[in-house]
Design a protein around this nucleic acid. Structure first.
Lengths: 346, 346
DNA sequence: TTGAAAGCGCTACCAT
DNA sequence: ATGGTAGCGCTTTCAA
């Protein structure tokens, strides 16, 4: 394309002119909902639009109508399978509803998240879906809630994918319960001595998974020594580093390693192998999320299944429904423990 | 939020009123580029905006300016690591440039792709980046090009991530060369009898990878029997099915399996294991793309590395630069063979 | 039913 | 430098 060649885009006006009708009639025949247009005219308009290659300007429509067809999705990291799978669910659901999805990444940084929400508000999306993990006690949290409330007061809708975000609609993920169930299963399989790659201390999802796990162990009079709880980043490299540290501290009194996310577990498995510890044989290992790849790794990973695509879809549906919590509106998100080869019976 | 409570959003007008200045001055102090506003006024405006919680309406700005800050990204499947990693690169680059990214999925369906491009044009994005694989000889291809050309004539920019898309700016992926190099390496490692999970027959990227692979083998007087070339879907399940079929046909005269994408390779590895064939030991296996997970699987996968995030970033940069091909504008995308444990020397 | 015209929120031009 | 004001492309009253 040579700069300067720019033909201005065809406008509705052009179409109206070509069809020999008024702007209003053209608008009604093309995009109007209440169809009260003479079929002859309508055909002429549609035909003209077709010929000229008219494409309605969504922004202009948005300005005129005061409403958009945009859904904004905030994720911590789109290249993380957890989020990309959720995103896939959101996008599919949005497309069937004729909505356009905008994705922004926050990198688990509350400051950045706040800034992003502000920027996104400029788009006047119909819905904002926040899928990133909450950071406990972040100073921006109050401000974020204020921003989101203001957004809702202006007619927007907010949906969280999270363990709780009281004032807002939420697709509830019972991280604590899931981790508890996982621990139960593992104890049932004969494991007794645990270590946890717990992720960052301030990420709520990670906290909850650790807590649930610990709760269930306590119920069996099993304890989790502090030196067996390692805090690292909530990603693959965090898992790798955590496992490395664990190995360095000595793994003799551990028979199962729980990583609070599958991607961490995958990093951990690599670290273990490099240290000569064979996952599944020398040490049981479990993750959380059930991202698509973990059934294909070796040994296949025991984990807690979250129906991620469904969660994405639900978040969108929820935001268009009543403002209640998912558990009430359309049944809880079912998480289930999936035992695979990484945790053979002992 | 109770419906009906909707306070209309704060507009620039409100801000101007509150600050006691004109609309024009308010606009200039908040968003104007050429700063020629009395500091006193400017401060008053900024302060008022702050107090009222004013957030500029991007759509209105877009309509008024006739230009947007949107980048549209089309991918076949956002939950595929290949695409989500590229998307990550695009988004990061876009955010530093103050652009908003919209993602649409095409599912490798040319019809859907065309419809999506049309719909996206309504957003008047500055740029459209097409990352989905081209489908050879699809009847919609001509129409798609026409649509994209029209888009460019109206001032938009198009960027492909592909092996060639002549009239449009392209981040060139040398699939054929990469596959050739891979085959060379494998021959160098001692492999002689090959099978290929070739993906769908009509996907250009898959075709090129097969062709390059075959070319290099031919140069060594090694042949690839038709019964050793299996066509299945370009995803994990395709790999699984293809490998299953291969096993059923008998694997005795094969010492290396090349899957034209990493996700296919991962599915294939699972299928092989279930059939009692241990990848890396009983059979070498190689993939293509170097998605993040393949270094963590066992055996770690030999593959052809594409710097996916960089590719995404480049696509965006390219679309803002001259309309040439990546190879010319900013150096070729460097792909390299990465040999790992899945292909031990024989 | 149709068309004229008044916005939607914002920018940019034009005088002042 | 500042403030009117005419658009941007579209929707939606309001008369006719």
């Amino acid at each position: 394309m040579e700069p300067g060649t720019n033909k201005p885009a065809v406008t509705l006006n052009d179409v109206a002119l070509a069809a020999g009708v008024s702007l209003a009639t053209a608008s009604r025949s093309l995009n109007g909902s209440a169809r009260k247009v003479n079929e002859t005219y309508r055909l002429r308009v549609v035909d003209a639009a077709q010929r000229l290659g008219y494409i309605p300007n969504l922004f202009a429509q948005a300005v005129a109508k005061g409403t958009t067809t945009t859904v904004a999705l905030l994720v911590a990291d789109i290249s993380d399978p957890y989020f990309s799978t959720i995103a896939s669910g959101v996008i599919k659901a949005a497309e069937t509803a004729g909505l356009v999805v905008t994705i922004a990444v926050t990198g688990r940084n509350p400051e950045r998240e706040l800034a992003t929400v502000r920027a996104l508000r400029g788009q006047r999306p119909r819905v904002m879906i926040l899928a990133g993990s909450r950071v406990a006690g972040s100073p921006q949290e109050a401000e974020l809630r204020r921003e989101l409330s203001a957004f809702e007061e202006n007619g927007g809708r907010v949906a969280f994918i999270s363990q709780d975000a009281s004032p807002f609609a939420t697709v509830l993920l019972d991280n604590r319960g899931g981790a508890r169930a996982l621990a139960e299963s593992l104890v049932g399989l004969g494991y007794r001595r645990f270590a946890v790659l717990a992720g960052p201390p301030d990420i709520v999802a990670a906290q909850d998974r650790l807590r649930g796990f610990r709760d269930a162990l306590a119920a069996h009079d099993l304890e989790l020594a502090d030196r067996h709880v390692i805090h690292t980043d909530f990603n693959r490299d965090g898992g790798y580093q955590g496992a490395t540290e664990l190995v360095r501290n000595g793994l003799d009194d551990v028979d199962l390693l729980f990583a609070v996310s599958d991607v961490m577990a995958m990093g951990a498995m690599s670290a273990l192998r490099e240290a000569g510890v064979e996952p599944g044989r020398d040490l049981g290992i479990a993750g959380y999320d059930d991202i698509p790849t973990v059934r294909d790794i070796t040994p296949a990973l025991t984990t807690v299944r979250i129906p991620l695509e469904e969660v994405g879809r639900r978040a969108l549906e929820l935001s268009f429904g009543v403002g209640s919590v998912a558990g009430a509106a359309n049944g809880p998100v079912v998480t289930e423990v999936v035992c695979r080869d990484s945790t053979p019976r002992r």
